[in-house]
Design a protein around this nucleic acid. Sequence first.
DNA 1: TCTGGGGTCCTAGGACCC
DNA 2: TCTGGGGTCCTAGGACCC
Length: 401
Amino acid sequence: MNAFFASVEQQANPELRGKPIAVVGGGGRTVITTSSYEARAKGVKTGMAIWEGKRVCPELIIVVGDNRKYTYTSCKINEIFRDFTPEVEAFSIDESWLDVTHSLGIFGSAEAIAYQIKARIKHSFGITCSIGIAPNKLLAKLASDMQKPDGLTIIAPDDVSRILERMPIKELCGIGKNMQRHLNMMSIYTCGELGRCDEARLTRKFGIIGSRLKQMGQGIDHSPVIQYGKEDDVKSVGHSRTLERDIDDPAEIRRFLLQLSEMVGSRARRYNVSGKTIHLYVRYADFFTSWGKQTSLKNYINQSDDIYKAALSILATVDLEQPVRLLGVSLSNLKHESEQLPLFEEERKKLFATQAMDELNARFGSEAVTFGSLVPEKASSGSHVIPPSWRPDGIKNVDVQ
DNA sequence: TCTGGGGTCCTAGGACCC
DNA sequence: TCTGGGGTCCTAGGACCC
C-alpha cells in the first residue's frame, strides 16, 4: 500500500485529503510513522520527530494513529488477495507476496490479476498500492518499489539482468546501510557488480551470507511464498516502550516492568506459547547508551508475574547509571504449549484466573483488568505506535469485529 | 519536549558434558 | 600428569526488515 496509514486516515476524514499529514503515535516522545505523499514532497520522512516534520513542512497536519483501523483494513485487503490465490504471505501490515503461478489459468495473467487487485482495493478502501510482478519474491519486491504511488512494474525473466545491471545494491531487500557500506568499500555499487563478484571473496568477508549476496545480485531467490497460517512458529514475544519522561524512581521502574510483563504474558498466552529466556532491555536518558541482559530459567513460563519476577531478577544484577528512557521485556526460547491442565489445584486456579483476565481484556480493551500494583497510578506509557512491521500473527489476533 | 516499536538471523566466546 | 575434539546451551551484540 502507498503511504498506508496516512492513506487510511485521509479516507476516513475527507478534510485531510490532498493535504500534508503525518501519522504519529500517542505519547509525547513519538515519531512520524507514515506521512502522506503531499508531506513527503515537502521533505517529511518516516522516523522524524514531530517538530522536525513541522520544520520542513510548517502546514503539516499531525494525526494520532489508530491501530485498529489499519489492522482491520490490512485483514480485508489480504482477503481480497486470497480471492486470487491461497498462496499469500503477509510481509508486514501493508505488504504481501502472492504466488499466482497456479491462478493464471483462471485469471489469464499476473498483470490482469494486478489490475483487478488495484481496482478492488481502490473501490473498497479508496487507497492505492504499488504492485511488482516478477519471477520471485526478491524481484517482485524490487519491482513494487520502482513506481510509487499507484505503480505496476513487471520484471520479466528476460529483463532481469538488464534491470539489475545498474540498480544500486541498496534497493535490494536485505541490503541495508551497513551492508551497503561494506560492499562499497569492495568497490561494489550495483547489483550487476555484486552478481559478478567472486563468491569466495564475498564469503571470506561475510560468511555464509556471502553466497546469498551473490545470488541477490543476480536476481536469484528460491524462497517460497509462505501461506497464511503456515509460517514458522513465533520465536520471541516482546514489548518495549519509551517512557513519557525519563525515570529513576525504582518503584516506578518496577511498575512499568510489570506492565510490560503483562503485555508480553498476555500475548504469549494468546499465541499459546511459553518461554524460558527473559530479556530485559534498557535505554538510558542520553539515548545512546543502552544494554540488554537475558537470563534463562529451568522452566517454561508465560504467566505475567513469572515474567515480571524474572525481569526483576535481571534488574537486580545491575546498577542503573542514568535515568531510564526506554524499557523492554521479551520472552524467547519458546515452545508451543499443549492444552494440558496443571496438576495442582493452586496452579489450576491461577490459570483460570489468568484466562478470565485475558478474556475480559480482549473484550473490553487491553488493560481493563490488570494487576493491583498497576492501578493507583498507571505507569505512564509512551507512544502507542503500531509498527508497519506488524506480522500476520499480530494481525490475525486483532479484534476486528 | 530530539530521535518508536515489533521482529528475525548470524556470530563469537565461554561453560559444560562426553 | 597432561592432553584431544565433538557437541549443546548460554549470553551478548550487531545486522537486517517493516
